[in-house]
Write a protein that binds this DNA or RNA. Structure first.
Lengths: 194, 194
DNA sequence: AATAAAACATACAGATTGTACGCAAATATG
DNA sequence: CATATTTGCGTACAATCTGTATGTTTTATT
């Protein structure tokens, strides 16, 4: 049985990422020693440090994969929408669905910002969701006074979405959070039309 | 020169907390070895482990002190206010002022949630600010339909405040964030009066 | 003054990270 | 196709860090 080098690399890389994800979610980044990761992946630390520069690089790969999955789910979830309002609410709902995957909020919203820093975090497409929100909000603020507030408004609401995702993942009342978000968006919309 | 035991304890505890704060802010919790902390504090690791159960306990003490300072500043900042709207906006402004102290956003909003967990974090008066916000929002939603959304709305806006504080600390445009928050609050107020 | 207890320093054991080195399988080269 | 070379990965090692155990000095107790 002989595998091509590319296959081998891809297989062990993914095994490490999968095992790492499992342990990072269960115990957190700091409390997860690399020996445990490689054991779970069925390799040795030699393989880990061959494919990744250090432990943090493996974590980054896990987070990147997770962020990509979220971006994909949102892309798919935002099918045909009618009004800007519907688009925003549907986007929020898709985001909550995507973030409902177990461990995802811990990885993306708690561990990653601290481990990678909010700087690396922004570069890492963590704001793909934010960009989507931004374009949705643009339809709302466009033409109004305070169109200049698009940036701050996007950041604020994005943060609110994250908080809602965290709360929902923690057993919070999803309907309540969705209603609250609708309220904020509707209020914002009205307020800009005076 | 002989100091009372209470004085000694208080002095070295505070020296450790101060040195720890400085290093945690500069390098982050994980990248700060205890030998560096005790050297900066002018003691040895023996003193550290005599006064704190472990490194995390020292970090917790730093965060507690920081959170208390924020709570105090907000308390003082919310002097005589007239309307609920003014109360909320003044509270936000006081919060931003308090969080503008260097390193505070990193400690309270980035490191602490990851190191202590959002669980310990909530218990740790991190939501003193949130409680204040909640009571301010109560005046807004009171009597309206969707009074039941007070909880989610508080969480969402609290998160938005945190994000604004982070952005401002990172050199963001404070006036823009304050305006955006005013917009959200005003919109919410109007929306509930229909 | 003598004893107890608290504050702290020193010494040590275990664990963890990253690196150096070695070997075997796969790919490149003539 | 044979040999050289690179790639994947396992093993061994050195440096560091954390927490504990043990000693020493200073303050409190009686």
């Amino acid at each position: 049985m002989s595998r091509s080098n590319r296959e081998r690399t891809e297989a062990t890389r993914q095994a490490l990422i999968t095992a790492g994800r499992r342990l990072f979610v269960d115990r957190g980044y700091a409390e997860t020693p690399t020996p445990d990761i490689v054991t779970a992946a069925g390799v040795t630390r030699g393989a880990l440090y061959h494919h990744f520069e250090d432990k943090k690089a493996l974590f980054r790969a896990v987070v990147e994969q997770e962020a990509a999955a979220v971006a994909l789910a949102i892309e798919a979830g935002s099918a045909d929408v009618t009004t800007p309002r519907q688009a925003l609410l549907a986007g929020a709902s898709a985001y909550f669905d995507a973030m409902a995957v177990e461990g995802r909020t811990r990885l993306l919203l708690l561990e990653a910002p601290a481990v990678l820093g909010p700087f690396d975090m922004a570069a890492l497409d963590g704001d793909h969701a934010e960009a989507s929100l931004r374009s949705g909000l643009l339809d709302v603020v466009k033409g109004s006074r305070s169109e200049a507030l698009l940036g701050p408004l996007t950041a604020l609401l994005s943060s609110a979405f994250d908080r809602a995702a965290l709360a929902i993942a923690g057993g919070g009342d999803r309907a309540g959070y969705e209603a609250a978000i609708a309220l904020l968006l509707d209020g914002l919309t009205d307020e800009l039309r005076r």
